[in-house]
Design a binder for these strands. Structure first.
Lengths: 230, 230
DNA sequence: GAGTGGTCTAGACCACAAA
DNA sequence: TTGTGGTCTAGACCACTCC
């Protein structure tokens, strides 16, 4: 492992672990130079990598700071549902349908026996229900979730603030509306829906798993990029 | 504009324009040092940026080469359909249904009056039809397409080889199977399908627009990434 | 073996923004 | 005004890999 990689990995670990929180200042270049006994260019390259990774922001004369994650950081502009609703005319509201604590068993993401907070709810726009969401949160990883008020802040936004810098996997499929999902979205059974399954981890530890279902005629996922991912 | 950015932009332009094709060697570092009259570190940083952008690959002792674009470079693992079929057991085949030349009118991507090659076909796996595809190619941008044999190489793969390094926009939605699409995929009308609309440009000039429709129960889109887009 | 890229050093000057 | 990051220089040594 190169020195640059080591500096970068050290800082990255401190950020992902939560020791350094969004907004915190990280050491100045000259402090890291002293700490690692290396040239400034090496430190600079390491920090440049963290900037490209979106983990930190740098300001002249001020220093370098842990960045605040935003949905664009996820490359694919995956639904910040509230923002999407605002674009469509506002009136966003999250309605909680169910909230229980359960124990994982045969879950594709969580280990058997893990305590999970299960949330079910509907995202509303002014003109009606917009998406159905079923979510599970690992209470071992995010214990604060057990007492959080998800009517004020939708679970997704709450998690972004409390578990920044997670890693995610998405799966998109098309399914017919059925059962509770169909009725909570006021859909005829069989109506095509976009289903988005997303699992997120922090440091390899599962954080949350969510299944969001959108009526096919009310939501598109859009991604635009060049070869560089820009 | 910094010197590093200028070196990088110069090379990027030569690659995107097609002057340098995939596999071509770009000048050695020491040649660029002489060409721009700068330090090797500056050249190295510029080339490092092109590597990160996925435009070039570098090998010790051999030099730096224009990279071959692959679907992973598109960040979202968007269907290299043939590869997806191979994963499912092989037997890939592309069946052409229609091939005509038309003139653009009211197209969301192509300017009115542009000559377009319109292709319609079905991607087959061993166990049946897999995806329906309707595509238009701008003949002004890719004149070779008019005489290409798309039964040997599916249009998507053919384009990757002939128009590298384009920029793309994707839109994913869920729609009911209907009309010719439903029948060519052997689906009951109304079956939920994933629809992928993709438009690509080269240097801001539209290249192709394609609409791919997948039976919802036979195909998922998967994307995995951390904050860095890795 | 020879030549490439990968990494690092120890300086330098500058633009910029915060104090 | 001051100190930060942004950029650049002119070296150096090394590892790898192609010939």
């Amino acid at each position: 492992m190169t020195l640059e990689a080591r500096i970068r990995a050290d800082l990255e670990q401190r950020i992902r672990s939560g020791e350094l929180k969004p907004g915190d200042r990280i050491p100045f270049e000259h402090e890291l130079v002293a700490r690692y006994g290396c040239a400034r260019a090496t430190v600079s390259k390491a920090l440049g990598g963290l900037v490209r990774a979106g983990l930190i922001e740098r300001r002249r004369k001020a220093g370098s700071f842990v960045a605040r994650p935003h949905s664009e950081a996820a490359v694919l502009d995956i639904p910040d549902i509230a923002a999407a609703v605002e674009q469509r005319g506002g009136g966003y509201r999250f309605e909680m349908i169910a909230r229980t604590v359960e124990t994982a068993a045969g879950d594709p993401v969580f280990a058997d026996g893990a305590r999970l907070l299960r949330l079910e709810g509907v995202h509303h726009a002014l003109d009606g229900p917009f998406a159905h969401e079923e979510r599970r949160i690992a209470l071992a990883t995010v214990p604060e979730a057990e007492s959080a008020d998800f009517t004020a802040t939708a679970p997704g936004l709450w998690l972004i603030d409390h578990v920044p810098w997670s890693e995610a996997e998405h799966r998109i499929s098309a399914v017919p509306a059925a059962g509770a999902v169909a009725s909570s979205l006021n859909l005829v059974r069989g109506t095509p829906c976009l289903r988005l399954d997303r699992a997120t981890w922090r440091n390899g530890e599962p954080v949350t798993r969510v299944r969001q279902t959108f009526p096919g005629d009310r939501y598109d996922l859009v991604a635009r990029f060049g070869p560089s991912g820009k």
